[in-house]
Amino acid sequence: MYLPPKSSPHTTNKSSTQNLMLRVILATLPAFLVSSYFFGIGPAINVALCIIFAVSIEAFIVSLRKRPVSYALKDGSVIVTAVLLGLALPPFSSWWLVLIAIGFAVIFGKHLFGGLGQNPFNPAMLGYVVVLVSFPVAMTSWPAPQTVASSDALAHVFLGTPWLDAWSHATVLDTLKNNHSLTLHELWQDYPYSGWISSNSSEWINLAFLLGGLYLLYKRVFTWHAPVAMLLALALMSLIFWNGSGSASNGSPLFHLFSGATMLGAFFIITDPVSSATSNQGRFIFGLGVGVLVYIIRAWGGYPDAIAFSVLLMNLCAPTIDYFTRPRTYGQRKAKRGFNPGDN
């Protein structure tokens, strides 16, 4: 009787990459719902456009690379990229803006490097940065919560009807950055959408991302090291450089934790295992770096929010971090660290 041979182990657990991706998508659901509450069909249009473009582009590129299309698509990683980018882009972004962002993410961010598992940069953040740098006005035009009617929004997204000033609202981070004369107290009193800590929409969306992130942590989709380190670094930096509530204020630690894309970044972006550092210690350092950079750019840089830039910068550092954070193997006197193999 012939039995086909197979190398051990002969059994594996039930985890799968598809499952992992599905969980990440599931974990974005709270933030998606909260965001939809504030911005209507905006996030839905963004996400839907992103997914359609992303899957089509990936299928096209994979067939160009002469690889089996269904096999490449079934891991679901491109959908995760699409969902995260869709949530990061301002609601009601024009369809061509979405196309450029997701196209850049999938083509340049992922497939030019060899596809899944090979990309040095987080694809979603790469796409985001490209449109942020290229179309700053469109990218900073966040709609005021609950103002844009669905029909107007659709006309803007697909037909290019102009964006009305009344629809826009400056984000809290923007407002804080451009404030040179008012105390924080005065500033937030004038700000129409302020909540307890940050803007009303921002703090709720951040909380929703935090919830999704905790679910992923509970499901052991990633370890705590990177998110905790990033939030810790951001909190510490904003604590150290917290200069009160005068007109030159950089904002309080809580303000920074619940503004902009902080929680999205901490739990959904820097936990991307492919472009992050690899060991637990490495991921901790990676998170610290992102947190510090986010604060530096927010407080002293030219952009109000900085998650994307910080993540890309730390992506660059990840291989080097890996070289210096190898764990000590059982039975080895000490960990081998450094650039050269065999360096001690």
């Binding site: 990459t17 891991d75 596809g115 899944l116 598992g117 990633f222 370890t223 295992p273 060991s279 637990n280």
Partner: peptide, 11 residues
């Protein structure tokens, strides 16, 4: 599927 460096093996 390709390795996505999720790091579970390392854990």
């Amino acid at each position: 599927l390709p390795c996505i460096r999720c790091g579970e093996c390392e854990q």
